[in-house]
Amino acid sequence: MNVPVSLRIAALAIATTAFYTYVGQLVPQKEVQPPVEVVISKDMKPEEMAKVGREIMDGKGLCFTCHTVGKSGALRFPDLDGIGGRAASRVPGLSDVEYLAQSLYEPDKYIVPGFNPGMPVISKPPIGLTDDEILAVIAYLQTLGGTTTVTMQTKINGSAGGAEAPAAAPAAAASEGTAAEPAADAAGSATPAQEPGQ
């Protein structure tokens, strides 16, 4: 049968397009929804904060776009496993909460050796976490190899109310388990900061 050239060309164009569409259906299909605002109340307990913090890191915070938990090898950003335990010793003079806060509010202040700068300021767009959301994230990070000491009343530098916060009690006190710190305590004065990656 002698098929006209124009029909052959049309068939080729349609078949090629159909093939690529088919390839497009073979890859994982994920619809990414805009981040959902998580409800945070001022009377949340530390464990509740950690749970919400994990949700924020998964969603609005976009943390796991870059970071991993429990992976090793050629990583682009630091793995967060055990960060709750080593945060206090990352930067001399900074408690774990202070260090974690600094890594979120001023991520370029401290770069974990072997990695490049690149973490955005989490409190500003496009991520734009609120101070309360950041507290929840810190609460979750503390659970990775440590204990949650931060509370919803903790004031930290970099946050909207941070500048007015009185000097903090040593974070070590918190980590020793002095229950939830009152607003003026905990991670107060020191400037937090980052792992390009935390």
């Binding site: 259906q25 890859v27 299909q29």
Partner: peptide, 10 residues
């Protein structure tokens, strides 16, 4: 929202 790749390819 960001659609699936399958939808985008269509």
């Amino acid at each position: 929202f960001t659609p699936t790749l399958g939808f985008a390819t269509k």
